[in-house]
C-alpha cells in the first residue's frame, strides 16, 4: 500500500515541517518514506507545498502528482490542488481560512477548523499539528504517539512548552473524529 500525500498552504504555516514530521513518523514505524519540498523559484511566490510518500514498498518517485491524501491549508491551494486528488482520495481542508467549498463528488471531503482550534489552544501556528492529528486518525496510517515523537525530531530547538502544545494540537486533531 502506497500513500501519496501533498500538503499545501502559505509559507509560514508549517507546511514543510508537517511533511517532514509525517515522513519521520513513517520512518519510525519502519515504512518506506520520502519527503520532497517544492523549491527554488516556486518557493518565492509565498505558497509552499511538499510531497510525502509513506509506503509498504520502496518509494518510486518522491514527487507526488496525484495524491490520495491531500491537506490544504489556504484558499489558493484549494483551487490548485483539488483537481489533482485521486478518485476516492481524502481531502482535508482548513475551513477556518478557506471560504470556498470543494466541489468534487468523488473524493472524501474533510473540513477541519484547524486554525480555530489552534487559536483556542493559544497559538494559530499549531494548525498544522491539528491537521496531522486528524489525518492520523482518519487514515490509521500512523500512531498518534509516533507523531508526537516525530515532531520532537523536527523541532529540536523548541522549548518544552511548545512541544507540549504541539502534542495537544495533535491530540485535538486526533479527537475530532
Amino acid at each position: 500500500m502506497t500513500n501519496e500525500i501533498i500538503i499545501a498552504g502559505f509559507g509560514g504555516q508549517g507546511i514543510v515541517s508537517s511533511g517532514i514530521i509525517l515522513a519521520h513518523a513513517g520512518m519510525i514505524e519502519d515504512k518506506y518514506v520520502s519527503f520532497f519540498p517544492s523549491y527554488g523559484a516556486e518557493m518565492r511566490g509565498g505558497t509552499a507545498n511538499c510531497s510525502v510518500v509513506i509506503s509498504s514498498d520502496p518509494v518510486a518517485s518522491p514527487i507526488v502528482a496525484n495524491p490520495n491524501i491531500m491537506i490544504v491549508m489556504n484558499e489558493p491551494s484549494l483551487a490548485r490542488f483539488e483537481p489533482t486528488v485521486q478518485p476516492n482520495g481524502l481531502f482535508f481542508f482548513n475551513q477556518t481560512l478557506i471560504k470556498s467549498k470543494p466541489t468534487r463528488k468523488d473524493i472524501t471531503i474533510i473540513p477541519v477548523e484547524a486554525n480555530a482550534i489552534a487559536e483556542e489552544l493559544g497559538q494559530g501556528r499549531v494548525a498544522n499539528m491539528v491537521m496531522l492529528g486528524i489525518l492520523a486518525k482518519k487514515t490509521g496510517l500512523l500512531k498518534l504517539e509516533t507523531l508526537k515523537k516525530a515532531q520532537r525530531k523536527r523541532f529540536t530547538k523548541a522549548n518544552k512548552e511548545q512541544l507540549e502544545l504541539n502534542d495537544k494540537a495533535l491530540e485535538r486533531g486526533y479527537a475530532l473524529l
Binding site: I20, A23, V33, S34, F35, F36, P37, P62, I63
Partner: peptide, 9 residues
Amino acid sequence: GLLGQMMEP
C-alpha cells in the same frame, strides 16, 4: 535535483 532535494531515511 530530485535526489538532492528529497528526504529519505
